[in-house]
C-alpha cells in the first residue's frame, strides 16, 4: 500500500532531514514496514520514486538488513537471541519451545536473532522490538500470550517509532 497521507507527510519530512536524500531509505522502509506489516514491493517502489533511485537500489539496500521483512509476517514478530551468552543461559530452549508452540499461529512469527545487547539478563527476546529478558520457555510464552490478548500493547512490526518527528 502506498504511504497514507499522514505517513507521506512524515516521509517527506524524513527525506528533508538528510543532506542527501538516499540516506532516508532505512527510515522510510521502517515507516512503510510499520504501516503495512512488512516491506512490500509497492513500498520499495514508492520509496525509490521519492528519493530518486531505482527500485533495485532500494531492494539492494533493504535486503542487506535483517529487520526488513519482505514477506508477510505475523502481527507479532518475536526475536529470540541464541548468541553466545543466551546460548549457555537457555536461549535455544526458549527458541525451540516458541517455534513449536507458535508453528501454526499466523499472528506470531518466531525468529532466531543475533545478540540483542541484553546479555546481562540472558536469555532475552524482543516482541516487535520491545525487550523481554531473563526468560524461561514458560515466561516467554506468557509474554506472547499477553500481547495476543491485548494485555500488553505491541509496537509496530518495525518497532513503531520509525518517524520520531523533528522538533
Amino acid at each position: 500500500m502506498a504511504f497514507t497521507a499522514e505517513n507521506l507527510l512524515l516521509a517527506n519530512e524524513i527525506v528533508a532531514r538528510y543532506p542527501k536524500t538516499k540516506s532516508a531509505i532505512l527510515p522510510l522502509a521502517h515507516l512503510a514496514q510499520d504501516q503495512d506489516g512488512y516491506l512490500t514491493q509497492d513500498a520499495m517502489r514508492e520509496i525509490a520514486g521519492m528519493i530518486g533511485v531505482t527500485p533495485a537500489e532500494v531492494l539492494g539496500t533493504c535486503s542487506f538488513y535483517t529487520m526488513f521483512k519482505r514477506d508477510e509476517v505475523g502481527r507479532l514478530v518475536v526475536s529470540v537471541c541464541t548468541n553466545v551468552t543466551c546460548l549457555v543461559m537457555g536461549g535455544p530452549e526458549v527458541l525451540e519451545h516458541l517455534e513449536q508452540r507458535y508453528a501454526s499461529d499466523k499472528e506470531v512469527t518466531i525468529e532466531e536473532v543475533e545478540c540483542l545487547a541484553a546479555c546481562g539478563n540472558a536469555p532475552a527476546m524482543q516482541v516487535n522490538y520491545e525487550f523481554h529478558e531473563s526468560l524461561t520457555p514458560g515466561s516467554a510464552t506468557e509474554i506472547i500470550e499477553a500481547y495476543k490478548s491485548g494485555e500488553l500493547t505491541a509496537r509496530g512490526v518495525s518497532g513503531g517509532v520509525a518517524g520520531g518527528g523533528q522538533g
Binding site: M67, S79, Y129, E130, G160, V161
Partner: peptide, 12 residues
Amino acid sequence: RGEFALGFERLE
C-alpha cells in the same frame, strides 16, 4: 541500532 526501539524513542 535498529533493534533499540525504546532507545530510539528516548533519544528522539
